[in-house]
């Protein structure tokens, strides 16, 4: 479905249109479930999170109109933020990363992916200007939900050092992205 199609569905959901909500779920749940699975690492928590996320989407749909962002980015941000909250709230324990995942081949709209590729090249180019370990830390945080604690122990540095590292990396990234 096109971004315009998804925007329209979200707008209709904000008017309490349940048919649009069904269609929105049908067209976006795989992407958001992919986010949940990657960050939470197991099916049970990912399923619970997906439920909470669509309840939030129903309740917050009216905010999309003022969000000034692409519909899929808005939805993914809701999903990521929710999953990271769940991750931060849970007790530390090993995540099961080996569960089988039924991955769907992404089939982005060609025009959309050309734009997305330009933007992706930009963030990737800018990440490429960081030291590889620091770029990995930034990617790991965004895509896997790594906390400062997790990053510090993985990179074997004290927590505060990690925070300094990452904040410096973010400043460099910003210069590159906005420069």
């Amino acid at each position: 479905m096109t971004p315009e199609g998804i925007s329209e569905l979200i707008s209709r959901v904000s008017l309490r249109d349940r048919t649009a909500f069904d269609a929105l779920y049908a067209s976006t749940s795989a992407k958001l479930f992919g986010v949940c699975w990657r960050i939470l690492g197991n099916r049970t928590e990912a399923e619970d999170a997906l439920q909470d996320i669509y309840v939030k989407i129903w309740n917050k749909a009216d905010r999309f109109a003022v969000a000034d962002t692409s519909p899929i980015s808005w939805l993914v941000a809701i999903a990521r933020n929710h999953c990271i909250d769940v991750l931060r709230a849970r007790k530390p324990g090993p995540a099961n990363l080996d569960e089988a995942v039924d991955v769907i081949e992404p089939s982005p709209d060609p025009e959309q992916s050309a734009v997305a590729m330009g933007e992706a090249r930009r963030i990737n180019d800018c990440l490429g200007q960081l030291e590889p370990a620091r770029a990995d830390a930034v990617r790991g945080a965004y895509l896997n939900g790594d906390s400062y604690e997790a990053l510090a122990s993985r990179h074997r540095v004290p927590l505060n050092t990690m925070r300094t590292w990452l904040r410096r990396s973010l400043m460099k990234l910003k210069e590159c992205l906005e420069g």
Partner: peptide
């Protein structure tokens, strides 16, 4: 946002 492409869809 461009990193969102790296979240592979998984059927729910």
């Amino acid at each position: 946002d461009p990193l969102n492409d790296q979240f592979e869809p998984v059927s729910a």
